[in-house]
Structures are given as structure tokens and as C-alpha cells.
Design a protein around this nucleic acid. Structure first.
Lengths: 189, 189
DNA sequence: ACGTATGTTGACTAAATAGTCAAGTAGTGA
DNA sequence: TCACTACTTGACTATTTAGTCAACATACGT
């Protein structure tokens, strides 16, 4: 059974992911969590602190799930990466990417959100970079500036998700991803 | 002298661009516009209608400014496009891209915003496509699926702006754009 | 059994916010 | 001058929202 704090973290992340930070009233979060107000203020100083905790903890949790395979994988890591990129079941195009959503909404508005999202985005990029580095190590990719290539991949991925969210067409996501994969393949050697 | 409605449209767009729709109180918009509440409700049914009008009108205005050169340009259109992409003075990385901001914040929340942003995004993509089509017409680019390539370019561009907004580093934008230009150049042949 | 720390309840306050309205002003054509 | 329309003013209401608080419950070590 989930404890009260976890219920709050989960409900907060989900409500913010669905409606944005500014569009997620505390009462809705509390209702979803099934937790009373005073109880919430026992665990968190205020709504913002709870939101920062929820975003940080859930995102790092997601990264651990999504990129843990990099450790164990040896051959075919790039193909595995492509396969996961093309896997639509892992994506929610209605809501988009939680990182992008919060960066867009909050980075310019609140310095604490800005700092948090910056570090989350950095970890995202490092995860992609580590895949590329491993691919180079096992000669599945020609040596190149993996920092820049990881930046290009994360940017394009975020843009692809945005396009699909804007048009409501998952195919747009796939088209961009396939074009991006073509580009990486050219570097494959 | 700007009339009252224009003042409202300008102030609404700017406040929403800075703080998001949900984060832009009507009173702030009115203060910035220097217009009283009743006056605003004379021109618009409510805050949402004013916001939709402001976003639609200002974005199409911006498109006209930014892509009007396509009509007149003949040779070197692709290089002109690259030059404009690399022009940092045309961008505000603190606030990011207004299209992306509003798509991220509102597409999932409100159907009217969803419809509007979809049409804006479509026009954006068509503008880029028309540049590519012209480049093919004058043999500056090999024939290709310009619908898909325009999708790839707009997606990557949006992703590049997001990256720069997330990290606070304009160079990230330039790095992604240069990598994208490299890719287009490969097709130039 | 007692005391303490930890967690819970929900009514309450204060502020912010969208929207209403009746009374006013100014310009325009007859 | 008069009537009419277009626009303006700002006080007012109703609702939503974050945050407070004091009383209550529960678990646990001694």
C-alpha cells in the first residue's frame, strides 16, 4: 500500500502533467490523492515545494526505468535505442513530454523550476550520450562529438513529440524519428 | 495611435507569451494595455476569446513578416533560409517559441486552443514547405518529399528552441540548427 | 498505562480572479 | 439640437484558490 507522501507525489505529477503547474489546483491534487489538506501541509511546505519534489522524483524514476538497459546491453545497442524511440506505447501524445511541458510553462517564470528542469534536461541528454558512447565503444558508430549528437537527438525527439501533440497525428512523430534515425545511420559508418 | 482593441491584443499576446494563458491574470493584461475591464468586455466575450484572438492574429502577423521574402526571392533562397534560422536576434530564448509554449500548455486542456494551435502549426509548416518547394523548383535542392522534410525542420527547430530555453544556452540552439542544416545539405546534391 | 512523535481532519481566512452592470462620455448623422 | 451608437469607467459580486490552525487519532517505546 502506497503511503500518503507517495500518493501526493503521484497525484501531483499526474495533475501537473495533465494541466500544467498553474492549471493544477491543489484541491484537485488532493482529491486525486485522497489526502486532506492539512495532511499535505504536514509533508510539504507549500504547493510549489510539493510540485518540485514530484517532478524531480518522478522524472528521475522514469529515467531509471527507461535507460537502465544501457548498462547491460552490449551488441545492437543502437538498434535497441531505435526500437524504443519508435515504440508508441511508451508515449502519450495527448499530454506530450512532461519535461518539455514544464520547461515551456515554468522555466521563464520561476527560478526554482528553471534550475530543476535544467538538471532534468541535462540528465536526459547524458542518458542519450551514454548510449552513443557505448555504441562507439563497441564500434557500432563512428567516433563523433556525442555531446552534440545527443543534443541533436534530444532536441529532435522533443520537437517530434510536440508536432504530434500539435497535429494530433502520431505518424508525424514517427516520420520525424525515422528521418532522425536516417541521419544517425549516415554517421554509423 | 493604437486603438483600444489593438492595445488589448498586443498586451494579451505579450502576457500570455511571458506567463502562459493560465498564468496571465486579466488584471495584468488590462494594466499593461492601459484599458479598463468594462472596455475589454465590450470588445471580447471573455478572457479566453480575447486570448484566442490575440494568439491567432499576432501569429499570422508574424508569419507574414517572417516568410514574405519567399515570394520575391529567387536564387539563394535556401541560403537565405539558413541565414534567418541562424539569426539569434529574431529569437527570445528566455520565453521560447510562442507556438510551442501554447501547444504544450493548452492543446490538451481546451479544444478551442487545440484547434487554433493546430491551424497555426499547419501554416508554420506550410511556410517552410513553400521554401523547400521553391528551392527544388530552382534546382537548389534535389526533389524530395517536402511535406516530410518541412515537418522534420519545424520539429527540429522547435526542439532546438526548447533546448536553449531549458539550458539557458543559445549555443545549444545554434548547434542543433547547424546539424540540421548539414542534414538538409546532404539532400542538396 | 503514559507520553511523545507522527500523521490526520476539515473548517476557517485572506487573497486573487473572472465576470457583471449601470451610469457615464464622445462622436456622428439627421 | 436631438437621438443614436460606440465606447469607457470602476465599483460590485461570486467563485476559486493557497494556506492556517487547533483538535483529534494512531503507533510505539518505556
Amino acid at each position: 500500500m502506497e503511503n500518503t507522501r507517495d500518493k501526493l507525489i503521484d497525484a501531483t505529477f499526474d495533475e501537473i502533467y495533465s494541466h500544467g503547474y498553474q492549471g493544477a489546483p491543489l484541491t484537485d491534487i488532493l482529491k486525486k490523492a485522497g489526502v486532506h489538506k492539512g495532511s499535505m501541509y504536514h509533508f510539504f511546505k507549500n504547493k510549489k515545494e510539493m510540485a518540485l519534489a514530484a517532478i524531480g522524483e518522478k522524472m528521475f524514476e522514469k529515467f531509471n526505468e527507461r535507460y537502465s538497459y544501457v548498462e547491460s546491453y552490449q551488441i545492437g545497442i543502437l538498434d535497441e535505442f531505435y526500437k524504443r524511440l519508435r515504440d508508441l506505447t511508451a508515449r502519450d501524445f495527448k499530454r506530450g513530454c512532461p519535461i518539455a511541458n514544464i520547461v515551456q510553462e515554468m522555466s521563464n517564470i520561476d527560478e526554482d523550476f528553471n534550475v530543476l528542469m535544467k538538471s532534468i534536461y541535462e540528465v536526459f541528454r547524458e542518458n542519450v550520450k551514454s548510449i552513443l558512447d557505448k555504441a562507439i565503444e563497441i564500434k557500432e558508430l563512428k567516433p563523433c562529438d556525442t555531446t552534440k549528437l545527443a543534443l541533436f537527438i534530444t532536441s529532435t525527439l522533443e520537437g517530434a513529440i510536440l508536432s504530434a501533440k500539435a497535429t494530433g497525428d502520431e505518424q508525424d512523430y514517427l516520420d520525424v524519428i525515422d528521418e532522425m534515425i536516417d541521419y544517425i545511420q549516415m554517421k554509423r559508418g
